[in-house]
Amino acid sequence: MKSQIELVCICCPMGCQMQLHVEGRAISEIEGNTCKIGLNYARQECIDPRRMLSTTVACKNGLWPRLPVKTAEAIPKAMMGEIARSLHFLAVTAPVEIGAVIVENICGTSINVVATRSMPKVKLEADNN
């Protein structure tokens, strides 16, 4: 089965409009790119689109109530919503060091979620009573 996919290249400000001609699961032709970077982007985007996911988790006793986190590697684009939702009700306790693993193997991707900043502890447990 032949089909055509429209893509905008995001690798540089040119923003080339590309057309991918797909036969079955194979790319037969890529048009519209003006450099090689665009070709690679189009292939990756067509076969296995991935994104970095950044979000926050609740943080107890920290300088701020939210700790920013990210996936250590790009995750499949289709899983962004699921992974973000799975972190909605997670809470960690300060202090946290930058790079610390917050969740291992998030949603079975074998990719970890890591802290993107250090969060110093400021509030004592007793202060919350």
């Binding site: 950044s54 979000t55 920013p68 990210k70 993107t116 900043r117």
Partner: peptide
């Protein structure tokens, strides 16, 4: 930078894609 938790910082200076808090750190 502390509130810009998305990635895309540092591609020129560090040749890697950092989040805002990581770049600040």
């Amino acid at each position: 930078l502390n509130q810009c938790i998305h990635s895309g910082f540092g591609l020129h200076n560090f040749k890697e894609e950092l989040t805002g808090p990581e770049y600040a750190d």
